[in-house]
Design a protein around this nucleic acid. Structure first.
Lengths: 223, 223
DNA sequence: GCAAAAGTGTTTTCAATACACCCATGG
DNA sequence: CCATGGGTGTATTGAAAACACTTTTGC
């Protein structure tokens, strides 16, 4: 009977794909594994779930304590339960996405010696350990879907972004080209973005006007 | 050290909210609990996850073996990890939605003595055990969101449904009234539904034409 | 013939699309 | 002055929304 009871005893880890936007590119944060197995491979940050904490507390702790990042917007995405995820024991994984804007990220920047972190463009991912490749792709698909059918893009674009920047992100996510004039017309005429009156100087070409999202508008699908 | 190891050992159960549409109403299947705790209360069907199975295998098994229902469309929704979900031990729960059309359901109908099942209108739910009330509401919200931004409504409406039926579901989900003429125009003109040529006789009033979804059309948000 | 429920058409408004030239800055 | 990148306007098409009367059946 005690072996039967043992049959229901599992381990569960958390994993998080943290996304940001930098110079028109969507990036995800990965961590380099320092020990075997998969030494030198890149993995998603995460931690084994302790019996005394919730998944959400655990992942918040991973973000703030382990990674040294600011508190950020987090959503649960999926729980992976393949039998052979880990080599020695049965470990399930609940995966999250986290969103942080690049400005906050740079302000908070604090290097840590004990972990090696790097931001990868979601179109050129490194060699990953475990089943993280599969998980990352699910997280990216989830991220894209959420950008399209919610207004969480606001989180990645705090005040003072340019419309060409925003357009690049939509083009990557929808995998289409958008006409610049029609894009501007849509966002401005429908009241989604508001001109701040400032411009983005110091780059090549004509300076771009800076905008912010209009928080008073209810969310709806733009594309 | 062995107590530290114990700290990461958890139990995880599956739960499923099975949805169907019957006479223009959205229903969810619940099970009456036969033993303490929460004896006599209604709960979502589910099962403790065994160390040797995946979540998906487990929940498929719950549907087919435990409930005696046909194989159906299932999606994972969320993993709940509150500390006090169960009274005695720590049990997490991964919740799923299942969709089945009423025709298939009636054909497969097989009564079982050992479990008491009942379909509840999602607007008049019974008294539930554990934290299932919270879980059901999350499942309903997820279900509604998926109906809106995917084409899974097709699963609930196999060939030969009427447009007034379909409209009622949209009205419940969107919580708005839709003009009958505009509704028909949209679905028919955009090619989403196809007239089968048959009509729905034997009810009060003028018989309704029967339609089926056009499978060749790619999914998009209709509302 | 009446109650119940379903079917139908027109007009107006607004968003979607397609498309080409000018403007402001840095070097 | 030129290269780079950003900003702007118009015309056409198609869908969204508003709106009231007629048709078919069961009883």
């Amino acid at each position: 009977m005690s072996s039967l009871k043992e049959d229901y005893s599992l381990k569960l880890e958390t994993l998080i794909g943290i996304f940001t936007v930098d110079k028109g590119k969507i990036k995800i944060l990965m961590m380099r594994k320092k020990a075997e197995p998969y030494k030198g491979y890149w993995i998603l940050p995460g931690e084994m779930l302790n019996i005394k904490e919730t998944l959400e507390d655990n992942i918040t702790n991973v973000v703030c304590e382990k990674l040294g990042l600011p508190t950020m917007y987090i959503e649960q995405c999926y729980t992976f339960s393949n039998l052979n995820r880990h080599l020695e024991e049965r470990v399930l994984a609940t995966a999250f996405i986290g969103l942080i804007d690049n400005i906050t990220l740079v302000l908070k920047k604090q290097e840590r010696d004990d972990i090696e972190l790097e931001w990868f463009d979601i179109n050129s991912l490194p060699k990953t350990g475990y089943d993280h490749d599969k998980i990352i792709h699910k997280l990216i698909a989830y991220f894209k879907k959420r950008i399209i059918n919610s207004n969480i893009l606001k989180i990645l674009f705090p005040s003072d972004f340019t419309l060409p920047e925003l357009q690049k992100i939509y083009e990557q996510i929808l995998n289409v080209n958008i006409d610049r004039r029609n894009f501007r017309k849509k966002l401005i005429n429908l009241g989604y973005v508001v001109d701040t009156g400032d411009v983005n100087e110091g780059y090549m070409g004509r300076p771009a006007k800076l905008y912010r999202f209009n928080d008073e508008l209810e969310s709806r699908n733009l594309f």
